[in-house]
């Protein structure tokens, strides 16, 4: 609200950069038709948005992103809880997970095409893999941070392992899980678009490459702007959701302060 009433210095910087964009393109400082003025880019953005083409593509991209995020994130939570509470599972699978984690996901897209094809199956899998690791590590961290007193009390009251996991450990590590999801969300958008750029005829990523190859720089940058705004919006939306879902945690923080 305050930002709307009184522009902050950060907001002014963005305005200045956008102005620099417009001016540099108008005066052709880059010496290239591939650097179109911002106004032309915004016109292209408006045209393709109102024409219905971009919203449709964006919907597809978001669908794939959220499907992968939810599937990979849920798997991350479950495996994280298991690893942290049953050491034997970690001894069994820990190494495998640690070996897969550092692989740059875009590098495995071409081989994955062999097994999963070019469409949703492959893309959702790739996004799922991306989302899995940050959620997994954060969940494990969260389980370690559960207060020993809370667990001891649970044991004293004779609450079994599964109920303890579900009713004491999971709620206590939720703030960590959410932090993992927030990292995963940003990565998921990136990876969805990259996967669409590499293979198949779907979504915003494919549109971006098609426009690049058609020599239509305004449409290409319009897509880039759209993705920037989308990424920002998703993060803000997630923060708002987190505040609502974890109100007790934030209330606790306020109390301590």
């Amino acid at each position: 609200m305050r930002a709307l009433a009184r522009p902050s210095s950060g907001f002014l910087l963005i305005l200045a950069l956008l102005l620099l964009w417009e001016v540099s393109a108008r005066f052709d400082w880059m010496n290239s038709p591939n650097w179109p003025p911002l106004s032309v880019v915004l016109a292209a953005l408006a045209r393709d948005s109102l024409g219905g083409e971009l919203p449709l593509l964006l919907g597809g991209t978001l669908w794939r992103m959220f499907a992968g995020l939810l599937a990979g994130g849920a798997a991350g939570v479950i495996v994280g809880l298991l690893f942290a509470s049953l050491p034997v599972t970690r001894r069994l699978f820990g190494l495998t997970v640690e070996l897969i984690r550092p692989i740059p996901i875009p590098a495995i897209i071409p081989p994955l095409v062999l097994f999963l094809g070019l469409d949703n199956t492959m893309k959702v899998t790739v996004v799922g893999l991306t989302a899995f690791f940050p959620v997994l590590t954060n969940t494990m961290q969260g389980v370690r941070a559960v207060e020993a007193d809370a667990l001891a009390m649970g044991r004293t009251f004779g609450i079994g392992f599964w109920r303890r996991s579900l009713h004491i450990v999971l709620p206590a590590c939720l703030p960590y899980v959410f932090a993992g999801f927030r990292v995963a969300l940003a990565l998921a958008l990136v990876v969805t678009v990259v996967a669409e750029m590499i293979a198949g005829e779907q979504g915003v990523g494919h549109y971006l490459v098609l426009m690049q190859f058609a020599g239509r720089a305004p449409e290409m940058y319009a897509t880039v702007i759209l993705l920037a705004v989308l990424g920002y919006g998703l993060n803000r939306g997630f923060l708002a959701f987190e505040r609502r879902a974890l109100h007790w945690y934030f209330a606790l923080g306020a109390q301590r302060n």
Partner: peptide
């Protein structure tokens, strides 16, 4: 299935 780079065609 259009792929601008064409890298996925033959594989």
């Amino acid at each position: 299935s259009t792929t601008a780079g064409g890298a996925t065609g033959l594989p």
